[in-house]
Design a protein around this nucleic acid. Structure first.
Length: 311
DNA sequence: TTGTGTTTTATTGCCTCC
DNA sequence: GGAGGCAATAAAACACAA
């Protein structure tokens, strides 16, 4: 096969236009042309005009036939310069586009008919359809990519919003839990003082190990444990069970759910309790609570805890 | 005018189907 | 094994800025 280069010359087009013997031979297009005169004047590289009049000279279109017949390579190359690749005319392309819209695949009969109507080789029509399908596929990929990108951007925006909301809620929970701990610690301090002052002169009956103050304290402990547990479960409900970020998470993870309000702590001395409470507090600096703060808490999250404390 | 990027036409090689 | 489709690629044609 006398193919010249990678695809520039139409000599190879002429000779390779059909791959097998069963389809129409390369010359068919020329014999089939003429049914649509409007296309015959195009600058198509295989139009009848081009075959016979290129650069004002008349020469055979199928150079390679001559080439093979006379075998004079140098003479051929001197006299017969390769034809330039030419684009299809606007009318031809329009016609092909309409045909493509009807059906993007070519049956052999349709290919022959189109080639006949356009004054092209059937092979050219087939190539045009093939390239047209490739173009469509490329555009479709671009569209799909854009759609995916749009979808991704939307999802990412939603995700970022939710992330910010989550962080805010987490901060709120931490703040409120810290307040609760601080208040509880103050309450314990005050109760211990009252206990010391009021019970020192009295002798308690043997076996009655539960004073009034201790009852209150136990109640507080019970309530606080409940609150902390619920706060903790809230955190773990809204996050990963392995969430460890934030000040309070370390506090919550430091032991089991009762470590903060371990009943045994009532056996500790005041100093020990103070030290323990301080060591358990996060390194936040809160405004010091006055006595009145305990009797008049803000009507909010702490209401329940405060009620427990009063009880 | 020229360099450069894009589009179009065409080839090649591989694969699948009948 | 032949026909036809597709991906990759070459190369000409075209568009356009500098």
């Amino acid at each position: 096969m006398a193919s010249v280069g990678g695809g520039g010359s139409n000599f190879s087009v002429s000779l390779q236009s059909q791959r097998g013997p069963s389809t129409s031979p390369p010359l068919d297009a020329f014999f089939l042309t003429g049914s649509s005169p409007s296309f015959l004047g195009s600058r198509s590289m295989v139009s009848f005009e081009d075959v016979h009049q290129v650069n004002g000279s008349t020469r055979p279109f199928f150079r390679s036939f001559d080439h093979e017949e006379n075998g004079d390579d140098e003479l051929d190359e001197y006299f017969y310069q390769p034809e330039k690749k030419r684009r299809l005319s606007v009318d031809q392309v329009r016609f092909l586009e309409k045909s493509y819209e009807v059906e993007n695949k070519l049956e052999p009969e349709r290919k022959i008919q189109l080639a006949k109507d356009l004054g092209l080789q059937p092979r050219q029509v087939a190539i045009w359809f093939q390239n047209r399908r490739a173009r469509w596929k490329t555009k479709q990929l671009e569209k799909d990519y854009e759609a995916l990108q749009t979808s991704y951007n939307g999802l990412k925006a939603d995700y970022d919003t939710l992330l910010k909301e989550k962080d805010k809620l987490k901060a709120d929970v931490n703040l409120l839990t810290d307040k609760l701990l601080l208040r509880e610690d103050k309450g314990n301090l005050e109760l211990s003082d009252k206990e010391t002052l009021s019970q020192e002169p009295q002798k308690k009956p043997i076996g009655d190990s539960t004073s009034e103050g201790e009852v209150s304290k136990v109640s507080i402990v019970a309530c606080k444990q409940e609150d902390i547990s619920s706060a903790k479960s809230d955190i773990f409900d809204s996050d990963s069970p392995h969430y460890t970020d934030g000040v309070h998470s370390s506090l919550l993870e430091a032991g089991d759910s009762s470590y903060v309000f371990e009943p045994d702590q009532s056996d500790l001395s005041q100093d020990e309790e103070d030290n323990l409470s301080e060591s358990l507090l996060p390194p936040y600096v809160f405004p010091k609570l006055e006595d009145g703060d305990y009797s008049d808490p803000p009507a909010s999250f702490e209401d329940h805890a405060f009620w427990c404390w009063s009880y």
